[in-house]
């Protein structure tokens, strides 16, 4: 494998640093490299716009939704707007959600919501970034709709029997984000401190918000 630039063909496009240069080239990667080269040569895409899009995508992290959760915890009017129209509520915090529709699901002592995509890997990527490996695994997709209480127990969430569990199956036109319960002992914390208590998996329903240490 080489990362140098000693090849002879003429071009002016930038080569971004490949942080995986120490890994073997796989057939999938080779198929992708071939596709990318052909798209560039045919003038359909250019390397700079691909890199620019990579950089935009890297700005999408669960912290965006954690900020929404923290705001909802401290501002009942914002929470009402988030429950009514989560996309618009995201925009209030300068978070552009590009999925067709986004619905916020509130967890309470009586109701626990958990998100899955049984058919593929639908996920609110513009809000949370790329989904975690467990979310796209066939085991999670298969089992969560059949035995959610057991799956959640495996994630360390033991819910009282009287708590209803609702599983929401995402699709191409509708994505979800969970509004977890606010932990006890967080009165008086700033929004940024509250946001730090919201892990990615709590936004899917597979974790609780953390309690302050």
């Amino acid at each position: 494998m080489t990362a140098d630039h000693s090849h002879s063909h003429d071009h002016t496009h930038p080569h971004p640093v490949n942080e995986d240069d120490d890994m073997d080239l796989t057939e999938h990667e080779a198929k992708f490299l071939a596709l990318k080269a052909m798209l560039i040569e045919q003038g359909i895409l250019d390397a700079a716009e691909i890199q620019a899009r990579v950089e935009v995508n890297e700005l999408k992290t669960p912290h965006q939704a954690a900020r929404m959760v923290a705001r909802a915890w401290v501002d009942p009017a914002y929470k009402a707007r988030m429950m009514a129209d989560a996309k618009q509520a995201a925009l209030e915090l300068d978070i552009p959600v590009t999925e067709a529709a986004l619905v916020a699901l509130e967890n309470t002592p009586d109701l626990h919501n958990v998100i899955v995509c049984t058919l593929c890997s639908c996920y609110p990527r513009s809000l949370l970034g790329e989904p975690p490996a467990f979310y796209v695994s066939k085991a999670y997709r298969s089992r969560t709709v059949r035995e959610p209480r057991r799956v959640l127990r495996e994630f360390g969430l033991t819910l009282p029997e009287e708590t209803e569990i609702r599983v929401h199956d995402s699709n191409a036109d509708l994505r979800y984000v969970v509004l977890p319960q606010r932990p006890d002992g967080t009165e008086g914390l700033s929004e940024s401190d509250l946001a730090a208590l919201v892990p990615r998996d709590a936004l899917i329903g597979c974790a609780f918000a953390k309690t302050p240490s």
Binding site: P16, N18, E19, D20, M23, H28, E29, F32, L33, L35, K36, L39, I44, L45, E49, I50, Q51, R53, V54, N57, E58, E130, P132, A133, F134, S137, A139, Y140, R143, V151, E154, F155
Partner: peptide
């Protein structure tokens, strides 16, 4: 079992997502 190990997105995978977003 549901795999719980985190998996880092590879460089080409990041680029693939960008390419399909653009396409």
């Amino acid at each position: 079992d549901i795999p719980r190990e985190e998996r880092r997105q590879l460089f080409w995978e990041k680029q693939l997502i960008a390419v399909v977003n653009l396409l």
